[in-house]
Amino acid sequence: MTNVSVTVNGQSREADVEPRTLLVYFLRETLGLTGTNVGCDTSTCGSCTVLVDGESVKSCTMLAAQADGRDVTTIEAMAHGDTMHPIQDAFHRNHGLQCGYCTPGMVMAAASYLQENPTPTEEDVREALEGNLCRCTGYQNIVKSILDAAGSMSGAPETTRA
C-alpha cells in the first residue's frame, strides 16, 4: 500500500491505496466522487479529465500516487451551489451535451484551456478538444458552448457564433 494525500476540490484527503490505483478510481471509489467518468481506458477519449494543479490531465492514465501532494479539481467543484460555472452554463444554453457522459471531461478540458487562452477562435477550441471524444453532439454545440463561455468569462458580450 502507498499513502496518498491529495487536496481534492479544496479539501485535503488521505488514504492508503494499492500503488496500482489509478487517480480516476481513487476519486470515484475511494473518495466517492463519481462525476469523473471512464470511457476508453487508453487515454484517448478524455472523459476522465480532471485538473491537477489547475491543468487538465487524464485521470485514467495517472496513478493516485502521482497526484500525491498535489491539488486536484473535479467536475463536482465547478458549480457554486446553484450557480453553475460559466462553462457549464454555456453548455446548457447551447445544447452542448446530449447523453452527458463525456461532458464532465469536456468541461474540465475547457476550463484548463480557457485559462491558457481566454480568447480562442473556433479553430483553437477544436484543437484544444482533440483529447476529448464525444459520440452524440458532433462537437458543434460543444465548440459553440466554449466560445460562448470564453465570451462571458472575459466579460465580453455573449455570442452565439454558429
Binding site: S43, S56, T61, Y113, A128, E130, G131
Partner: peptide, 9 residues
C-alpha cells in the same frame, strides 16, 4: 504531441 492533457503530464 498527443493532446493537451497528455502534454500536461
Amino acid at each position: 504531441i498527443g493532446d493537451p492533457q497528455v502534454r500536461h503530464v
